[in-house]
Design a protein around this nucleic acid. Structure first.
Length: 293
DNA sequence: CCGCGGGCCTGAGAGC
DNA sequence: TGCTCTCAGGCCCGCG
């Protein structure tokens, strides 16, 4: 499902169930997600407790009392939901027909908090990995990430430097996790619309010939920050009925200005354009050809 | 090195 | 009803 705001929403939803709670029992029902689950996955979790639940870009990071970090990625269709342990149905209950949903419940954590945490992922693009905390910074997955857009590192200077000389489009550059970590197809489209920049322009336009940021870079940085903060405050976006861990829908999707709005009038005040859909590097881009230049 | 296209999976929805 | 086709919030890999 998720881009940064959705993953942050998931993190907050999991906190009451996992923070300071112990893994009483772990079920690895399907051992190959995008990658095989780590060796001794169950044994390395059971008996340990979660000392902190963090997020880096689109990764959830659970610090364990063992010194390992459990790293979780939701891919395209991954989600977590919570169930109260005492309400869990007994396996083999013949009144209970396995719903379509439960068919893709691949990993289940039974926590000492009384909550059961269920990872569901139909497409299995998500994955989990265990890394000793001391090695996290050196992990290739973490090293491949640029700055957190809501952190101190992310500013116009850095963005311009990262885009300097790039011949690829702004759309592709902002989707590149090495440039900024956490944006995806939706928030890139939305940020470019709000910043009134065409997704087709070269990424290098954010920098002058010395790599210094210009007004476009400044505008884009503050737009990206604003939109992510607003989306987190709204509980993320719920497309195709995706839900937060508590079952509630996020509602930021109602505030999309271009995403999945092909043919609609551009919402920019005074703009008479119509939203267009094009394909860039294999993904849909939605934008207004009139006010985004 | 860089940028692009294909591939990994399953399911929903549109059109016939 | 059912088939076929396209598309889906991500990311890795190999090619030119």
């Amino acid at each position: 499902m998720p881009e940064l705001p959705e993953v942050e929403t998931v993190r907050r939803g999991l906190e009451p169930a996992m923070q300071n709670a112990r893994f009483l029992k772990v079920e690895a029902r399907r051992k190959n997600l995008r990658f095989p689950l780590p060796r001794n996955f169950v044994a390395r979790l059971q008996g340990n407790s979660v000392t902190g639940l963090g997020r880096r870009a689109k990764y959830l990071l659970a610090d364990l009392s063992s010194g390992d970090v459990l790293l979780m990625h939701l891919g395209m269709s991954g989600s977590f939901r919570l169930a109260k342990a005492d309400q869990a149905r007994a396996p083999g209950d013949f009144h209970h027909e396995r719903s379509k949903d439960e068919k893709h419940d691949h990993v289940v954590f039974h926590m000492s908090s009384g909550w059961t945490v269920i990872f569901n992922d139909p497409r299995r693009f998500g994955f989990m990995k265990m890394v000793p905390r001391a090695d996290l910074e050196r992990d290739p997955l973490m090293r491949a990430l640029g700055p957190e857009p809501l952190g101190n590192q992310f500013d116009a200077k850095m963005l311009a430097a990262a885009c300097r000389g790039k011949t690829t489009s702004l759309k592709a550059a902002l989707s590149d996790q090495k440039v900024i970590a956490g944006l995806g197809n939706i928030y890139v489209c939305e940020a470019l619309h709000r910043a009134r920049l065409s997704p087709k322009r070269q990424a290098s336009i954010l920098a002058d010939k010395y790599g210094k940021p210009n007004a476009h870079a400044e505008a884009l940085v503050s737009t990206i920050r604003d939109i992510l903060q607003d989306a987190i405050a709204a509980g993320g976006s719920s497309l195709r009925d995706h839900r937060q861990t508590n079952g509630e829908l996020g509602y930021f999707q109602h505030r999309f200005r271009v995403y999945d709005r092909e043919g609609e009038d551009c919402p920019t005040p005074g703009c008479r354009g119509k939203i267009r859909r094009i394909v860039q590097t294999g993904r849909s881009t939605f934008y207004c050809p009139v006010c985004q230049r």
